[in-house]
């Protein structure tokens, strides 16, 4: 007969679902999608197995970086309503487990990417993980209200990696795709920050609405959205895409700008303001990125099916 285990009261080991939750699956969906679009829109051919491996490595790398982010920010997450149910702040998991899991995922993704795809993709994947887990999470986020602007670079790498997995070298197109997500990130996050700013203020994160105020944030959202419109058209102007992408980017970006103008030109009506325009902009920004990159792929495949590529 085995002896009963001594346990701290109510303390159970973390479930596999808790580890999965550490990878921020919902954020990963967007990362996988943009990475896949970069891969499918790139000129050239990649074996489907290697294409799958490239996307898998991008996803696992993003999951590893997310786990490291939550390991570092466990105390901050515990103080915010939006994040306090995550595995670490809710006490379902020990911090060291999250750290080890994050390091293992990150290392595995970079090594497999290097072995299966190419060294350039592995290096960029490693840079993106370090950029998110160290530069953004540890250094920028607690220090500067521009954290989102510079940190946005971390989420902008996946389409670039997807593209480079096919071509193996850097050209203007993957750089433009990087810049589009880089420019999209601030209005996307600041729209969210506007309606959850009390949470950020409570835990001392210097998000722009907390530090510079709502008015300045709204102006910045508008500014970035104005710049985003011509930037999304660059792939069309430089001949990297055709008319399908051009029309889709124009329509989608005008919609983005219209919603951003509603946010940028208004002020909170009071404490009971439900922040509907800000929530609409946030929801639309996610849909926008999905649709924009889907149009990029549709454009490329129309070209292939038309026999021009």
């Amino acid at each position: 007969m085995t002896a009963p285990h001594l346990l701290a009261p109510d303390r159970l080991p973390a479930e596999w679902r808790d580890f999965f939750a550490l990878t921020k699956p919902r954020v990963m969906t967007l990362v996988i999608f943009t990475g896949l679009c970069g891969l499918l829109a790139a000129p050239g051919h990649i074996h489907p197995v290697l294409g799958f491996v490239a996307i898998l490595c991008i996803a696992v790398g993003a999951g590893g970086a997310a786990a490291l982010n939550q390991w570092w920010e466990a105390d901050i997450d515990a103080g915010m309503k939006r994040t306090q149910k995550r595995p670490l702040p809710s006490g379902k998991m020990e911090r060291t487990s999250a750290r080890d899991f994050g390091v293992a995922l990150s290392a595995a993704s970079v090594i497999v990417m290097g072995l299966a795809i190419n060294a350039l993709c592995a290096v960029i994947l490693a840079v993106s993980i370090v950029y998110y887990a160290l530069v953004y999470t540890v250094w920028l986020k607690p220090r500067t209200p521009l954290n989102i602007v510079i940190g946005g670079g971390a989420g902008a790498f996946p389409p670039m990696i997807g593209w480079l997995a096919v071509t193996g070298h850097i050209t203007l197109m993957p750089v433009v795709l990087f810049l589009i997500i880089f420019m999209w990130t601030p209005p996307h996050f600041w729209a969210l920050a506007l309606f959850v700013q009390t949470d950020y203020a409570k835990v001392g994160i210097p998000m722009l609405p907390v530090v510079a105020g709502e008015r300045a944030t709204r102006r910045q959202i508008l500014g970035y959205s104005v710049l985003l419109l011509p930037l999304t058209l660059v792939p069309w102007w430089i001949g990297g895409t055709g008319v399908i992408y051009g029309v889709a980017a124009t329509v989608l970006s005008i919609g983005f700008l219209a919603l951003a103008m509603r946010v940028g030109l208004r002020a909170r009506t009071g404490d009971d303001d439900r922040m509907k325009p800000e929530k609409q902009l946030f929801a639309y920004s996610i849909l926008y990125l999905f649709a924009l990159f889907a149009a990029l792929v549709a454009d490329r495949w129309a070209l292939i099916l038309g026999g021009h590529a």
């Binding site: 009963p4 285990h5 001594l6 346990l7 109510d10 159970l12």
Partner: peptide, 13 residues
């Protein structure tokens, strides 16, 4: 609180 796991907790673990 009991330090020895109850059958329920042990089964869950």
């Amino acid at each position: 609180p009991p330090l020895v796991a109850t059958p329920d907790i042990e089964a869950n673990r």
